[in-house]
Computed example of a mutant assay.
Amino acid sequence: MWAFFHKLGSPRWFYGIAARLSPWCWALALALILVGSVWGLAFAPADYQQGNSFRIIYVHVPAAFLAQSIFLALAASGFVFMVWKIKIADMAAAMMAPLGAAMTAIALLSGSVWGKPTWGTWWQWDARLTSMLILLFLYLGVMLIRRAFARPQSGAKAASVLAMVGVINIPIIKYSVEWWNTLHQPASFTITERPAMPVEMWMPLLIMVLGFYAFFAAFTLTRTRTEILRREGHKRWVKELFEERP
């Protein structure tokens, strides 16, 4: 296991394996998101209380899930980079952060659009909404602090520390609806409990969630390959790679 772990940390090996995996991840993401969006937006029944306005759930929930998961991945990558000095972990973290920020912004925007007909307002300083806004600021902080140092190594370490400290916000987001009296509804479905929605409504939501995670994998693999070429461009194996191409 440790041998595989260190092999995964090799930029050259990761570049090759990512090239083989990324097309499959892109294809899976496209298929799942296409099926889930068409099913959810066109064929799922309307909610008995919210009508068709509930359909924004097929964007809001996957984006919110992914926003939190990416920050967990940032913290894990930062830990790996700080402890074992594995460069791939930092490269992947640098590529994941902008996507995480985008997903957080989408979750906040779609939540506001959903909240207007449901709550009668675009925004409330609700515990869930506020902690998601803090998550967006954490993402922005991670990206900015990486560029705030003259030495890239120092910026990478500072970004890793901020991600590891900021991860405490993730359980606050998750359990805020249980810890405080909030307007935000509880989770639409969980792994351990049967969804309250009928299967025709939660199945396309599940497909969309899986599609977003497949997109995350495809995006990270593709962008990390680009970052490897940027950082390792002076290495012999990179030069040989381009010399072999016609």
Results as ranks from 00 to 15, higher is better:
Ala67Ile: 04
Met96Ile: 01
Thr121Ile: 14
Trp84Ile: 01
Ser69Gly: 14
Arg55His: 10
Met95His: 05
Ser53Gln: 10
Trp119Cys: 06
Trp123Asn: 06
Ala94Lys: 12
Ile57Trp: 10
Ile106Phe: 11
Val61Trp: 04
Ala101Lys: 01
Val83Asn: 08
Met96Asn: 03
Trp114Lys: 09
Ile70Asn: 08
Ser69Trp: 14
Leu109Cys: 03
Ala73Phe: 15
Met103Arg: 00
Thr118Ile: 09
Val113Met: 12
Asp90His: 10
Ala105Arg: 02
Ala76Phe: 15
Pro98Met: 01
Pro62Ser: 03
Gln68Pro: 02
Leu109Pro: 09
Tyr58Met: 01
Trp84Ser: 08
Trp123Tyr: 11
Val59Asn: 01
Gly100Met: 02
Gly111Thr: 09
Ala107Tyr: 01
Ala73Tyr: 13
Leu109His: 04
Gly111Asn: 08
Ala94Glu: 15
Leu109Asn: 00
Leu108Trp: 07
Met91Ser: 06
Trp122Pro: 07
Tyr58Arg: 05
Trp119Ile: 05
Thr104Trp: 05
Leu109Thr: 14
Gln68Phe: 10
Ser112Glu: 11
Ala93Thr: 01
Trp119Arg: 07
Ile88Pro: 09
Thr121Trp: 07
Asp90Asn: 13
Leu72Tyr: 10
Trp114Asp: 11
Thr118Ser: 12
Ala92Ile: 13
Leu108Lys: 02
Ala105His: 00
